[in-house]
């Protein structure tokens, strides 16, 4: 327990440190118009921020179209109220981290990473519920991917055509909080072998594709899932072979989980 507290404290310190450097998305040429594909701009932003010691990448109101971006050490993506990361509906724009499904925001083996909702009016790290949005356009993406499968250009490897919204593998110090998550083609949040994970205050609405699960954790350690509302076509929460799992006050349209 002491160790856990210590690691929490450490994580908190790291977060505060990271928070010292703030970057706006437009500095890297990201466009909020909903039609410009921003994958490379967002990736450049993440790489730059990480290589300069970490910080926060802020997205303000608007729709930012993107394919897969890889989160890097000490970078937190902040989606302010009205900001939406929109998944591009072309399967070739998605990449999978090792041992995990494809996703819009992915990471492998990174430390102190986050995707968090915020509002301009409120302080960061307060209890923001369902603010910024990640939207997968799952129905459209799946349809397009199926067409590619049918034509034979896309191999039928499992997980190929159903990207998650967030897919992290082997990461430590992960925060996914205060967001709205909509329309995943696959599972909404996929966590594989991650340690010290907080998933909280999410509003999840993902019913566009069959068997879409909400939060899927596999082989994770110190996992906290609290205060989430999850409306999905599959199961809301799956925690497989994970240790130190704390699940509290999560709801579905049918009531408390």
């Amino acid at each position: 327990m002491k160790k856990f507290m210590l690691s929490l404290l450490l994580a908190a310190c790291a977060l505060t440190l990271a928070a010292q450097t703030e970057y706006k998305a437009s500095l890297f040429g990201c466009m909020s118009d909903g039609v410009t594909l921003n994958t490379r701009s967002i990736q450049t932003a993440i790489n730059t921020i990480s290589s300069q010691g970490g910080g926060m990448l802020h997205f303000y109101v608007g729709r930012y179209l993107t394919g897969t971006v890889f989160l890097k050490d000490n970078v937190t993506i902040v989606l302010h109220e009205g900001a939406t990361l929109v998944g591009v509906p072309s399967i070739y724009d998605y990449v999978a981290p090792s041992n995990a499904p494809k996703g819009i925001i992915v990471a492998e083996g990174q430390k102190n990473i986050g995707v968090v909702g915020s509002t301009p009016e409120r302080e960061l790290n307060t209890n923001v519920v369902g603010s910024g949005i990640i939207q997968g356009q799952g129905a459209l993406l799946t349809e397009n991917a199926q067409a590619q499968l049918a034509k034979g250009y896309l191999a039928k490897t499992s997980g190929q055509i159903s990207p998650a919204l967030i897919s992290f593998s082997g990461c430590t110090g992960v925060k996914v909080t205060g967001l709205m998550l909509q329309g995943a083609a696959g599972d909404v949040v996929a966590l594989k072998g991650c340690t010290d994970v907080e998933v909280a205050r999410l509003l999840v609405d993902s019913r566009e594709t069959l068997g879409c699960n909400g939060i899927v954790a596999d082989g994770c350690k110190n996992l906290t899932l609290t205060d989430n509302f999850i409306h999905v076509s599959g199961s809301a929460i799956q925690a497989l072979q994970s240790k130190g799992v704390k699940v509290k006050n999560n709801k579905t349209p049918k009531g408390k989980l």
Partner: peptide, 11 residues
Amino acid sequence: YPYEGPIEDNP
């Protein structure tokens, strides 16, 4: 539509 209005004041 271009520049869709933001989804706000949730839940």
